[in-house]
């Protein structure tokens, strides 16, 4: 089967973001950007399925600025076969991302699409589910295990309270959770090889999707800061203090 993996370029998870003083957003100038960690997990899962012989081709797609090409190259170096960059400098909301992906899927006809459960910048946790609805496909979100079996996809999901397994008809949408796998680092030879793999360049307009934002940002502010409290000497002092506060 063919698998499509959408990957997003986001601020690196180690970076502590700073809110701009004019409250228009967070400062992204000169900060390290990386592939959304959940998307690395998605790419890894697709590559493992390919290594097992269950998948023939992995296509990665990113919607974002020119630099999102680097994110696609990372995915190609991990083992994806081909990339599609849908270039835009605008912030594209999950609904519009899902609409563009719907069109890409119309052209590519994958049987499985693996997305991250959330992007760590906007933390929306929407795109995969929206895409599933637009396509009328079943979804297995927050996956910690994916098993292909007799034309069905069994997905074990991390839910409140434990784990749940669903059986999905194909084609289907899967979104990845942290414990699905541990993504590999691309080896140097694979990074070199990835440079020769094809990346198609498109624009949202090519798909006829209106990316105008439905949400406008009124302001972006710092969360209230929590002051560090005091150090206690020992357990006895801790217990006394907590009792005084009525906490225990």
């Amino acid at each position: 089967m063919k698998v499509l993996v959408p990957v997003k370029r986001v601020i690196d998870y180690n970076v502590k973001v700073r809110v701009k003083s004019d409250q228009s957003g967070v400062d992204l100038a000169n900060v390290k950007m990386s592939m959304n960690p959940f998307d690395e997990i998605s790419v890894e899962e697709a590559v493992r399925l390919k290594e097992k012989g269950a998948v023939e081709e992995i296509v990665v797609v990113s919607i974002g600025p020119q630099q999102a090409q680097e994110t696609l190259r990372t995915a190609l170096a991990m083992g994806a076969d081909r990339g599609i960059l849908i270039k835009t400098d605008d912030a594209v909301e999950p609904l519009a991302v899902a609409k563009i992906l719907e069109k890409v899927i119309g052209e590519e006809s994958p049987e499985l699409v693996i997305l991250g459960k959330q992007a760590i910048d906007d933390d929306s946790n929407q795109t995969g589910q929206m895409l599933a609805a637009l396509l009328d496909w079943p979804q297995g979100t927050f996956a910690s295990e994916v098993v292909l079996e007799d034309g069905k996809i069994n997905v074990t999901r991390e839910i409140d309270g434990g784990l749940q397994t669903l059986s999905l008809q194909t084609p289907a949408i899967v979104t990845t959770d942290l414990r699905l796998n541990e993504p590999r680092y691309a080896s140097l030879p694979n990074i070199m090889k990835a440079k020769k793999k094809p990346i198609d360049e498109k624009a949202p307009g090519d798909y006829g999707v209106d990316t105008a934002a439905r949400l406008s940002v009124v302001k972006v502010t710092e969360p209230p800061v929590r002051e560090a409290g005091e150090k206690v000497e020992d357990v006895a002092e801790l217990v006394t203090k907590l009792k005084a506060k009525g906490a225990i």
Partner: peptide, 23 residues
């Protein structure tokens, strides 16, 4: 915004052509 809500609501938003506001 439990795993139930996170799983279900974006589907409805997409069908209504609405951009969901999460969390």
């Amino acid at each position: 915004a439990t795993t139930m809500g996170k799983n279900v609501t974006p589907r409805i938003a997409a069908k209504l052509d609405v951009m969901q506001i999460s969390d």
